[in-house]
């Protein structure tokens, strides 16, 4: 399914992520997952949060370069080979992935967050 991901552009400066966390704390936002993609100058933080719109407003208000993006969230069993099966399906359909990360809420299942090159095709493929 499609979900909203919050992404934030951050310069590589000490304490900058701390300020993001503080802004979300003040807005009463919970994070389910996040990942950081970085180079020597800047990083892009991507977050899955409890209330994406409220979190977006809170970060904007605090002056961050935040944006809301659509990403695909795929459900996956938490057992050996599950991710392999899922990815095989996407590869067979000719879908490539810009980035992805995963998180697990309990012992039996995992959530895979994906940014595919073709959003609609990815969802159809996963649901088939």
């Amino acid at each position: 399914m499609l979900i909203k991901q919050l992404s934030v552009f951050l310069e590589n400066k000490t304490g900058r992520f701390t300020e993001v966390a503080a802004a979300l704390k003040d807005a009463g936002i919970n994070m389910s997952a996040f990942t950081v993609s970085e180079n020597s100058d800047f990083g892009i933080v991507r977050l899955i949060v409890s209330e994406p719109t409220a979190a977006y407003s809170a970060l904007k208000k605090a002056g961050f370069a935040a944006s809301l993006n659509d990403v695909v969230c795929a459900h996956c069993d938490n057992k050996p080979g599950a991710l392999s099966t899922l990815l095989n399906k996407l590869t067979a359909a000719g879908i490539s992935i810009e980035y992805m990360y995963a998180f697990s809420i309990d012992d039996t299942s995992a959530q895979i967050v994906l940014k595919p090159n073709d959003m609609d095709k990815c969802i159809i493929t996963l649901e088939s």
């Binding site: 992404s7 180079n39 892009i44 370069a65 944006s67 810009e98």
Partner: peptide
Amino acid sequence: EVNEKFYSDEMTKML
């Protein structure tokens, strides 16, 4: 400074 509309979630686009 990048215009706020153009900050991307994708590293490749920013680079």
